[in-house]
């Protein structure tokens, strides 16, 4: 059960944060189809940062002295780098869709094509193969994992169910993302900035008539979206792909879009939806080793169902869930329509 909850969280948290990225863009009126591409780019930047950092003396000393505070700090820095570069990458989308009034779907698709191409081009040149990991092949994810030994607790001590689940073998990044999710949700709903941002996605003409700069707001929405998607991409690579970048996040950005629609563009619903999808993704990834009631029998692996079914499940469920919810879903009214001052 502990394993199931931890694994679900690992998949649900990037989904949640990237779905929130989608909310910020769409609530300001820009369809951000490029989430997948920004995630790929963010993952690459984060991993590259960790790889470069590995060569520095600061890291070397901290690693040798088991100074976990510094290591966690470096993890946060890598997240920051991924977020910043994600934002820079998303500027391509906001420039095209705000200033040039381009078709946002095509613009997003272009970024989705560009990110893996650019990333793979660079990875091939840096690492001479199609995967960017650490230079010496070590497992970077384990450096950042918080374990019992991190706090000086003996490995055999039982911390109880809550302790085992939420303190042992977890990543700080997971909790930072949850905190970020809460803070930004409050920002979107309880502050003046949030209200203005949302008004630009519903009725930009009215917002403009009240003195709100729609172009600026849409830039803000897409840029926040880029930061979150970049962070989400790195967190995905760190926690589920052993801190390696391969120019691929297996359709996670699109799943996040589905989570966003399923969650009706509302943060609380999205958190719930992300947990549900995280569970299916977790089943798809590790159906063979999930032991639900702890009796040592892996129910799912023994069931007479092909492993291909489990892998297909997240996508199939998405389609079915969308079929049931899309009639009721209410997208921001002005999303996808370039704002034209002359049409006021």
């Amino acid at each position: 059960m502990t394993f199931l909850i931890q694994q679900t969280l690992l998949y649900a948290v990037p989904l949640m944060i990237v779905a929130l990225a989608g909310v910020f863009a769409e609530r300001s009126g820009i369809i951000n189809l490029a989430l997948e591409g920004i995630m790929i780019f963010g993952a690459f930047i984060g991993v590259l940062f960790v790889r470069l950092m590995q060569g520095t003396a600061l890291f070397h000393d901290a690693f040798a002295a088991k100074d976990w505070l510094t290591l966690q700090g470096l993890e946060l820095l890598a997240m920051l780098a991924a977020g910043v570069m994600g934002a820079v990458f998303s500027l391509l989308l906001s420039f095209a869709s705000v200033n040039l009034k381009a078709d946002q779907t095509i613009g997003g698709t272009a970024l989705n094509l560009m990110a893996p191409a650019l990333v793979l081009f660079l990875i091939r040149i840096i690492a001479n193969q199609n995967t960017l990991g650490m230079a010496d092949g070590s497992d970077a994810a384990s450096w950042f994992m918080i374990k019992k030994s991190t706090f000086g607790i003996d490995r055999k001590t039982d911390l109880g169910f809550l302790g085992e689940t939420f303190i042992n073998r977890v990543y700080l990044a997971t909790y930072v993302c949850i905190l970020l999710f809460i803070v930004l949700s409050v920002l979107l709903y309880k502050t003046r900035f949030g209200l203005r941002l949302r008004s630009c996605g519903e009725n930009p003409q009215a917002a403009d008539s009240l003195g709100i700069n729609v172009y600026k707001m849409r830039y803000a929405g897409t840029t926040i979206s880029g930061v979150l998607a970049g962070i989400g991409g790195f967190v995905y690579a760190l926690t589920t792909a052993n801190c390696a970048s391969t120019g691929d996040v297996a359709g996670f950005g699109f799943l996040a879009l589905a989570v966003m629609i399923f969650g009706n563009w509302k943060p609380l619903n999205i958190a719930g939806a992300a947990l549900l999808f995280g569970l299916f993704k977790c089943i798809a990834a590790s159906y063979a080793s999930i032991d639900i009631n702890g009796d040592g029998v892996c129910l799912l692996a023994n069931a007479p169902i092909s492993s291909h079914v489990y892998r297909m499940l997240p996508y199939l469920i998405t389609l079915v869930v969308l079929a049931f919810t899309s009639k009721k879903s209410r997208a921001p009214k002005a999303e996808g329509i370039p704002y034209d001052r002359g049409q006021r």
């Binding site: 391509l92 095209a96 040039l100 009034k101 381009a102 078709d103 946002q104 095509i106 613009g107 698709t109 272009a110 970024l111 094509l113 560009m114 893996p116 191409a117 650019l118 793979l120 081009f121 091939r124 040149i125």
Partner: peptide, 20 residues
């Protein structure tokens, strides 16, 4: 020493431009 992914970059730039 370059690789074939550069052509994918070129293609994506073309798609980006065709958006506007």
């Amino acid at each position: 020493a370059y690789n074939e992914y550069i052509t994918d970059v070129i293609i994506s730039v073309i798609v980006y431009l065709s958006a506007f």
